[in-house]
Design a protein around this nucleic acid. Structure first.
Lengths: 143, 143
DNA sequence: GCATGAATGCAACCGAGTTGCACCCGTGCC
DNA sequence: GGCACGGGTGCAACTCGGTTGCATTCATGC
């Protein structure tokens, strides 16, 4: 198979779960795979527009939710209250980096540290670590 | 001084910065101090209503922003995209616990683990750790 | 070809948060 | 006492991310 093509890679990933690879799903997943950082709903809308295949915003929300439910993407909510999505497969417990200057969110490869102790009775299930600061671009631009 | 009275404690904290302790500021800070968990904007609106001293929502937003700017409160944005506020003084690097069942956010006393490694060029400034799971109330209710 | 269900598109809606502006009220000055 | 001034407050309208309801389209199995 042609794993070199982002399009076919997206189709392959979607069909791997036995689901039908509809145009919208393939397009969104392809855009997510192509994005180097996480992508917001708005970014994806714009990207779809740019390639002359505009997506309905509701369809986009539904496709994104579906991708997250399928484990093909994951979402992070930034400080600006905007959800951002990434096609990185869920490595449970990977950290994020949020740039305070440009607002972009990056997935970090590094694993997490120890989980903080929770009060008695509290049942911890997942750890969510976000590093705030400046991304390489903004550090460079500001220096 | 009467540190036993939440009201006077709030007045003292506000005036410590040389600012005027207006009714709205004292009321909001008092409500925050009285809350055992973090409080959302809506919670505070309701609490103010309950004590027959309703607050304008804009005033509340402005007072909260002011309190955060003064370092008298801090805000956390949950997965539900709602900001929650706490009067706990900023101990840089304290973690939060977000209950997936009831949505409440708690401040954890425990310190954070090691900061994940960031890619080259990235400048880390602050670490934000949130544990997801079920709070004591929800664990108890669900069992 | 046709029934069926999932996926899509459109419009209207919701809720958190913001902005603009008028008003109030305490303070300093004459 | 009257008045200008400025910070704080209240109201209304707005923005924006996201959701819901519903009709339509499309793929799929029979």
């Amino acid at each position: 198979m042609n794993t070199g093509s982002p399009h076919h890679e997206a189709v392959r990933l979607i069909q791997a779960g036995g689901a039908s690879a509809t145009a919208a799903r393939v397009q969104v997943l392809r855009l997510l795979l192509a994005a180097h950082t996480t992508a917001s709903h708005q970014t994806l809308m714009q990207a779809a527009m740019d390639e002359a295949r505009p997506l309905d915003k509701v369809t986009l929300y539904r496709v994104l939710d579906w991708l997250v439910a399928q484990g093909l993407a994951h979402s992070v909510t930034g400080q600006d209250r905007v959800r951002r999505f990434s096609a990185v497969p869920i490595q449970h417990g990977h950290a994020h980096f949020e740039c305070d200057a440009c607002g972009r969110l990056f997935c970090l490869a590094d694993h997490l540290g120890a989980q903080p102790r929770t009060p008695p009775g509290f049942e911890a299930r997942q750890l969510d670590v976000t590093v705030h600061g400046r991304c390489a671009d903004c550090t460079h631009a500001g220096a």
